[in-house]
Simulated assay, not measured.
Amino acid sequence: MIHVRHTAVAVVPVDLAFAHIDDYRNVPDWMFGITRFDPLGDPDRGLGARYDTTMQIGPKALKSTVEITEWEQDRLITLSSVAGFGNRSTWMFTPVGDDHTELSVDFGYELPGGLAGRALGKLVEPFVVTAIKQTEANLRGQIEAAGR
Score class of each variant (00 low, 15 high):
90 T>G: 06
58 G>S: 07
72 E>R: 13
147 G>N: 07
121 G>S: 12
129 V>T: 13
115 L>P: 08
41 G>I: 06
124 V>C: 04
50 R>D: 04
146 A>R: 13
102 E>Y: 04
8 A>R: 02
137 A>N: 11
26 N>M: 10
15 D>G: 09
20 H>C: 07
2 I>K: 03
17 A>P: 01
42 D>L: 14
97 G>D: 06
69 T>S: 09
63 K>F: 11
118 R>H: 11
64 S>V: 06
71 W>L: 07
37 F>Y: 12
133 K>A: 15
7 T>D: 15
132 I>N: 10
58 G>N: 00
115 L>W: 10
148 R>I: 10
117 G>P: 02
43 P>L: 02
99 D>N: 13
39 P>S: 03
71 W>K: 08
47 L>K: 04
127 F>M: 08
42 D>R: 14
129 V>F: 13
124 V>A: 04
53 T>M: 05
53 T>Q: 03
125 E>K: 15
58 G>T: 03
42 D>K: 13
83 A>T: 11
52 D>Q: 09
146 A>D: 11
15 D>E: 15
18 F>D: 02
24 Y>V: 10
108 G>V: 11
38 D>V: 04
86 G>C: 04
118 R>F: 12
147 G>D: 10
107 F>A: 07
106 D>M: 13
98 D>R: 12
68 I>A: 09
95 P>E: 09
94 T>A: 13
123 L>I: 07
33 G>F: 01
134 Q>P: 05
119 A>H: 06
77 I>N: 01
124 V>N: 00
27 V>Y: 02
67 E>R: 07
66 V>F: 05
139 L>R: 01
3 H>E: 15
120 L>D: 01
144 E>Y: 03
80 S>H: 08
30 W>S: 02
22 D>F: 10
87 N>C: 13
121 G>I: 04
134 Q>T: 12
89 S>V: 15
4 V>I: 15
122 K>N: 13
140 R>C: 08
38 D>M: 02
21 I>P: 01
19 A>F: 06
15 D>L: 11
138 N>W: 00
118 R>S: 15
122 K>M: 15
97 G>C: 10
106 D>T: 12
20 H>V: 07
23 D>Q: 11
143 I>A: 01
118 R>W: 12
102 E>S: 06
53 T>K: 00
75 R>C: 10
3 H>R: 14
148 R>F: 04
68 I>F: 08
38 D>S: 10
82 V>A: 10
12 V>E: 01
8 A>G: 03
80 S>A: 14
101 T>W: 01
19 A>E: 05
13 P>M: 08
21 I>E: 04
62 L>H: 03
24 Y>E: 09
17 A>H: 01
128 V>Y: 04
86 G>A: 13
75 R>P: 05
108 G>A: 15
76 L>D: 06
110 E>Y: 12
100 H>W: 04
6 H>P: 00
